[in-house]
């Protein structure tokens, strides 16, 4: 995979901070990300790499028309799957129409904190899950196996609210993927993972599905856990073919109300904006941001 050796890391740390970044072609548009609610969220999690929250309108909500246009263009490219994120997608008043629009053309995953999924919405989602031709997945973020652990990151009383949302989905036949950001490294280790499996089984989810993600040291997370060091950059020659393939930006693009970007991580980086629409974003990209280093070293993919 993309791991650097200890010797590489030491050599890197000693080098001056001037970089010649690798360039990555878009091999095929497998994944289209849509920032449907922009940076608007009902929570303001301390590790959010794009600092989403109730007052962040840096990226506006997308209109249904914008979503439709991006989906149609992606279908022309032979897209394989869609992801909705935000912000909190269930804050969008037309989220149902958007879900239907994407599911008509391919599998869809919606990333959510689950809090706004009430009984009625859970029942609607359950119907879509059963009726749609393509796979429909919900991914619910949870950052600890106790209220103390989770709420320290995601905000007071969120632990129970998130798990109640998970319960409602489960009661309606949906087994969501619980996504954990490994702000505390032990959460990603085997014993930490095991705790999440046990928590979910104890709530009646007999077949827990989990995804663990490394934090990106940008946005609010930079203030919480510290930013990147100078040496944490990719350089030409770091990527072999296997590493290129494993980077999701070799097969994904992100569309927001503000334009098109290489990936979900970099939408607050002005230089990362590739143009107004997906059409402008099919070009190769330069992996010159320190977050690219996290994807490479940690083997991160935002895909499920």
């Amino acid at each position: 995979m993309g791991l650097l050796s200890a010797r590489d890391l030491i050599r890197r740390a000693k080098e001056p901070a001037t970089y010649d970044s690798p360039v990555l072609e878009l091999e095929h548009l497998d994944t289209l990300w849509l920032q449907v609610t922009g940076t608007l969220c009902n929570l303001a999690c301390l590790h959010c790499f794009i600092s989403c929250g109730p007052n962040n309108d840096s990226h506006d909500m997308m209109s249904l028309g914008q979503v439709q246009e991006a989906v149609d263009r992606a279908v022309e490219e032979g897209v394989k799957e869609f992801y909705f994120t935000g912000g909190e997608p269930f804050m969008h008043p037309q989220i149902r129409e958007m879900i239907d629009c994407a599911l008509e053309h391919g599998p869809l995953t919606v990333l959510t904190n689950g809090i706004l999924i009430d009984e009625e919405m859970a029942a609607w989602l359950g119907d879509r899950f059963r009726e749609s031709r393509y796979s429909f997945d919900l991914r619910v973020s949870l950052d600890g196996t106790t209220a103390a652990e989770n709420d320290a990151i995601r905000g007071r009383h969120t632990f129970e609210k998130i798990l109640s949302g998970v319960d409602r989905l489960h009661q309606n036949g949906i087994n969501p993927v619980i996504t954990v950001t490994t702000c505390h490294a032990e959460l990603g280790a085997e014993a930490g993972r095991q705790r999440f499996f046990e928590l979910l089984r104890s709530r009646g989810l007999e077949r827990p599905r989990l995804k663990f993600l490394a934090p990106f040291k940008i946005g609010r997370e930079e203030r919480r856990g510290g930013g990147y060091e100078d040496y944490e950059r990719l350089k030409k020659g770091d990527l072999n073919e296997e590493a290129k393939e494993s980077l999701q930006c070799s097969s994904c693009r992100m569309v927001t109300a503000k334009g098109a970007y290489p990936c979900p991580i970099l939408i607050e980086v002005e230089e990362a904006r590739m143009g107004d629409s997906l059409d402008d974003a099919l070009e190769p990209i330069e992996l010159n941001h320190p977050a690219c280093y996290t994807c490479f070293v940690e083997g991160v993919t935002c895909r499920t």
Binding site: E76, E77, G78, K80, P107, Y134
Partner: peptide, 15 residues
């Protein structure tokens, strides 16, 4: 997988 392969994706693979 059947549920993960849109028609457009399969068409693009074949092409």
């Amino acid at each position: 997988w059947e549920s993960m392969c849109p028609d457009a994706f399969l068409a693009s693979l074949l092409t």
